[in-house]
Simulated assay, not measured.
Amino acid sequence: MKIGIPKEIKDREFRVGMTPAGVAALTARSHQVMIETNAGVGSGFSNDEYIQAGGKIVNAPEDVYSQEMVIKVKEPLPSEYALLHSQLILFTYLHLAADRQLTEALIQSGSTCIAYETVQLDNGQLPLLVPMSIIAGRLSVQFGAHYLTKQQGGSGVLLGGIPGVRSGHVVVLGGGVVGTEAARMAIGLGARVTILDVNLQRLGELEALFGSRVQLLYSTASNIAEAVTSADLVIGAVLVAGKRAPTLVKRELVQRMRSHSVIVDVAVDQGGCIETVHPTSHTVPVYEEAGILHYGVPNMPGAVPWTATQALVNATLPYACALADFGLEALGRDRTLAQGLNIQNGRIVYQAVAEAFPDLPTSIRSS
């Protein structure tokens, strides 16, 4: 198969869809891999390294998208829509339930679109989302602590406190991978941590993991309100696979938060779980509303591309190899990979996306 690896064009997105080691694995299986020039530089990989791995460097995105499959990191942006075509397999993060424009563009392109974030194991785990969720969870506290400093517009709270001065309060909405990693980082800094979740079994698992170092609450409106209004840093870490994130914190509740506290909504790529959050960028990551700093960068792991690219490719490469070896037959061979299929033949084929856009053409596959 002929495979294209484009240079990411989202704001300050320095990750790349394939490492030189991944290219070597694909070319060893007799596949041809075209890498857009300097696509890997931001992650620490030179053009020469890709050439040595058996890849070919091409100069224009048109040369990448004209291939049979494109493997990338983030969703195509409007300037890339015209490059999509009906013979293309697109393998990347998509997060369609929160992006009607992209969904319509992919439908119109006729491309077969497989989303990393909905590739799902029988036990419900999302193997291609987990590595980036780990990174985003850890970064959420790192960035949150940074923006709490007075020079960045925050309240001036040191999350870890010092002897004689209480530590900062971090509230984590959601106890999945992102929430767990956020809590791990916050605990490491010495913060007081509260995690809220609706899954009692998960709360029990978190108790076994963290013990008395965190406060674990069932996620009700009253518990959320009490926790959020006492927080210095709120982390939105809610995930419903493939669906738009539910809104857990309304605008009125944000207005009751402590002045110059910070919100980091990791769920922003699925629409966000905090009403006042909207997507930002690495160039302009925060804005103030109701006296609260909001961080809404949807591609947080792009800040640490050397780590994030390798972690991502470690997870995606086996599925990329299967698609390269067998084409769309790979979907029939592996139902985990098949769960990633979101759009095919001009129709939405993933249930959660179809529910988000009931007026768009759908063809829901049987389970």
Rank of each mutant, 00 (worst) to 15 (best):
M1Y: 11
M1F: 10
I5V: 10
K7F: 07
K7R: 13
E13A: 05
F14M: 10
G22T: 04
V23C: 01
L26W: 01
S30D: 14
E36M: 11
G54T: 04
V58K: 02
N59F: 13
D63E: 15
D63P: 09
V64F: 06
S66Q: 15
V70G: 00
V73A: 03
L88A: 11
T92W: 06
T92F: 08
Y93G: 07
L94F: 11
H95D: 03
T103N: 01
E104M: 13
L106N: 02
I107T: 07
Q108A: 13
S109M: 07
S111H: 06
C113A: 11
T118I: 13
Q120L: 08
L128Y: 04
M132N: 09
T149Y: 11
G154M: 08
G160N: 03
R166M: 15
R184S: 06
A186F: 02
T194G: 08
L196Y: 03
N199D: 11
L209M: 14
S212V: 12
T220R: 09
N223S: 14
I224F: 01
E226T: 07
T229S: 12
T229M: 12
T229D: 07
L239Y: 07
A245R: 04
K250L: 14
K250S: 14
Q255S: 15
S261E: 02
I263S: 02
V264R: 01
A267K: 00
D269E: 13
D269I: 03
G271D: 00
E275S: 10
P279V: 05
S281F: 07
T283K: 10
V284E: 14
I292R: 00
N299H: 10
M300K: 03
P301W: 07
W306I: 15
T309N: 03
T309V: 05
T309C: 03
T309G: 01
V313E: 00
A322K: 04
L328N: 11
E329F: 14
T336N: 07
R347D: 09
V349C: 13
V349F: 07
Y350F: 15
A352T: 11
A352G: 09
A354F: 08
L360N: 09
I364F: 13
S367F: 14
